[in-house]
Nucleic acid binder design. Sequence first.
DNA 1: CACCAGGGTACCT
DNA 2: AGGTACCATGGT
Length: 285
Amino acid sequence: MTALLLQTRLPVSDYDLAATLACGQAFRWRATELGWEGVIGPRWVRLRAVEGDILAETVASPDDWRWLVDYLQAELNLASILATFPDDEPMRASVEACRGLRLLRQEPWECLASFILSSTKQIVQIQQIVELLCTRFGSALATPLGARMTHAFPTATQLATTTEADLRACKMGFRAPNLLAAARAVDSGELDLNMVGQGTVEQAREELMRLPGVGPKIANCVLLFAYGYQQAFPVDVWVMKALRQLYFPKRQPRPERLQRFVDTYFGPNAGYAQQYLFHYMRTRR
DNA sequence: CACCAGGGTACCT
DNA sequence: AGGTACCATGGT
């Protein structure tokens, strides 16, 4: 299905699209000759940097671009966030290596489902699994000719009516029953994702962790990337490596000691600092 | 080809 | 409480 393209230009400062879209917080962005192509909610989107601003193309429908500004966090004052990071050598190196990296504000269901699929998977593989899931179960989108991303992320309701075997066919292995359980919980109303963002970060985390296959790490990713709880600090293998190597090179602190450290040391935007450490560790050398 | 990947859980001392 | 095997798949 082809459609007319609509353009807008978002004024931004200090925004690195590549770092932001490919740093492992979202999984549906691909670099093409014409820019970064992806899907936000029910819309196909293409983005590219033009004179420091962001030029966005989508198919005609909205005359309001609020959904895009929110997703990209285009109006966020990044410098005021970075100013709250601890003034130490690892964070200085991370900020230097991650110029213009932003945290996105993603749709909760897509974020939750994607990170349920992420456990012990490389980012490239997560992208492949998510794309299989979208083409098989997501609704077809209005797209320009030659688009790579042609389907929306499947809704919880769409996935709730699949089977574990259907999902395993998308190469997600042992994660299939966990995704199915999450889809059913959201579809049935047993888990209300709109309510999760209302309470404290602890309440929200507890609610998400009631799902099978959702532990502290995945819950924190959703809290940070979808709900914007800046205190949420996901610790994966890379961040663990960063913490041990850069902050505790001598001895190995116990998990509880480490948890207390990340919850106090990195300040009010600890989650943001975490993403900078993550990207720094993954891109150096 | 081993080794590892944006983990979580059940089961064992 | 703290270790450990296992889960499925494929990139490096």
